[in-house]
């Protein structure tokens, strides 16, 4: 088993999150920012699962499940706000 492969994967994901942040700041419209935020959320969940492997802690994966569901609720509410239904 190659050592450090999980850590390298997390570094790549962190770099991808920073790249997605460019779209989050650049916009130009609110839905574009929500798309970027959704990307950041998905990548955060992926890195949480990988962190659970590195530290051998199950709690990271549990937090990932809860984070997935809560970020979904957040996305839904922002979408409702943008669509003018709130």
């Amino acid at each position: 088993m190659m050592p450090g492969i999980w850590q390298a994967a997390i570094l790549v994901i962190a770099a991808l999150i920073l790249a997605a942040m460019i779209r989050l700041f650049a916009g130009p419209t609110a839905p574009d920012r929500v798309v970027a935020l959704d990307t950041v959320n998905t990548l955060t969940i992926a890195s949480m699962i990988l962190l659970g492997v590195i530290y051998r802690q199950l709690i990271f994966v549990d937090v990932a499940i809860v984070y997935a569901l809560l970020s979904f609720v957040g996305t839904l509410y922002i979408a409702k706000y943008i669509g003018g239904e709130l």
């Binding site: 609110a30 409702k80 706000y81």
Partner: peptide, 10 residues
């Protein structure tokens, strides 16, 4: 799906 619908409604 929600974002696409909201973007179209906005």
């Amino acid at each position: 799906h929600a974002i696409a619908r909201a973007a179209h409604m906005s």
